[in-house]
Write a protein that binds this DNA or RNA. Structure first.
Lengths: 225, 225
DNA sequence: TCGAGGATCAGGGGCGTCCCCGATGGTTCG
DNA sequence: CGAACCATCGGGGACGCCCCTGATCCTCGA
């Protein structure tokens, strides 16, 4: 935890495509965050958000993940690419607790991620901590965020794994991932069921998976279908 | 369209599990709906909603679709089953524009369905029209709602099939479609493997499918994951 | 009150999945 | 040539998937 020393109020820009949600956040911050939070601007889409951040250079941007024009990650990418507001922190505020949303947003540069079930006082506290450089996550998200960044899949590692498959193994893998039974794969490739089993065994071992269902998800995650 | 004659303000109960969103709606209705809308109560889950509707008997219930305790449809079902507030109209207010959410909510008895992208003045107007008996839908939803109720093969057929599943069968179906093994489903739902097998048997028979792989494709085609 | 249907569970069987063990022939490379 | 790797196949086994029959308990409506 950083120290609680602060000079003045934390300046904030609210980015969300729902006007009513912005209004609710504003109302909560103005009552629960009395004197601690100053709302500089609101934005309803990616372009507005970029303009608002560039103009006001807030301490913290409250950023909705699902946003017309490319999503919250797009905002962070384009602001930092434009060299603007390097000291600004981003706190994602989303209804979604899906792993891909969370990880994608953190990869994009957010310093925290809380769900919209948060209460006003908790949000004020989260904003304060993010402004001071802490990372803030909803309790339910904290666990798997750490998992994802402490030794799980890397994009580079994916291609290495794929390269270690032989041509025949890749053919079998594709068909299995599409839901073919071993018997059907065998007929399709004019080989025996036993050969299919052997290839599948190698595929699962090389990709460190344990079932055809995991393989299906693995392949669809990487759009290999 | 009904006439615009009204004696006094329309009484409203707001149901949504996000306190901040309720606050935003309240703020919008109190400024944009000045004198036309009277907010009687708020509720954050199914039980609170039922109690609030029974106690206040509002003209209109603003009802979130995704709600802890069974969802908005559950609120309408239990209020009408309890004989309470027959003259109360329900207006669904949701982030989701998924077909199953919309159709399920309308089937549950809602007189309208608008997304949370709506503005304050539009919401005030929608509440007024629902109170007078009109049906109100966001422009984007209107088209396919009409389709679904005028003999569309696609959505209607899906929904019929889905309707024939019991609640428990749908739970099992969702987990299986996500790749859970029977054993895992059993642990998740605190029932025996044999019961899972029974439910799956019913699911496959009712949906005229023959394996969990077909079920996975069926579900993903209809975005039920 | 009786039947229908839903949720729960058991046993047994056929087949699919995935693993272990093994084997043969083919290639490439040092 | 031998080592390494690949593709091909087999036996056997443990376990998962899916079906069938049959059962109990409960709730709801005719």
């Amino acid at each position: 935890m950083a120290t609680a020393e602060r000079k003045g109020p934390v300046s904030v820009v609210i980015v969300d495509d729902h006007a009513m949600f912005r209004r609710g956040v504003r109302a909560e911050l103005e009552s629960a965050g009395r004197g601690q939070v100053a709302i500089l601007a609101e934005a309803a889409d990616v372009d507005e958000a970029i303009a608002a951040v560039g103009e006001h250079r807030p301490d913290v941007v409250l950023l909705d993940v699902h946003l017309p024009g490319g999503g919250g990650a797009e905002v962070m990418r384009r602001v930092t690419a434009g060299g603007g507001a390097p000291e600004t922190r981003y706190l994602a505020l989303s209804v979604s607790d899906a792993a891909e949303d969370v990880i994608g947003t953190i990869r994009g540069g957010a310093r925290g991620y809380v769900t919209k079930t948060i209460t006003g006082p908790e949000l004020v506290q989260a904003i304060g901590r993010v402004a001071e450089g802490d990372a803030v996550f909803s309790p339910r998200l904290a666990g798997f965020v750490l998992d994802a960044f402490s030794g799980s899949i890397d994009v580079a590692a994916v291609d290495e794994d794929l390269d270690r498959l032989t041509e025949r193994e890749r053919e079998v893998m594709r068909l299995i991932a599409r839901g073919y039974a071993y018997k059907e794969v065998a007929k399709e490739l004019f080989i025996s069921i036993k050969t299919v089993e052997t290839h599948m065994s190698s595929v699962l071992r090389k990709l460190q998976l344990s079932s055809r269902h995991e393989l299906t998800r693995w392949a669809s995650d990487r759009r290999l279908l």
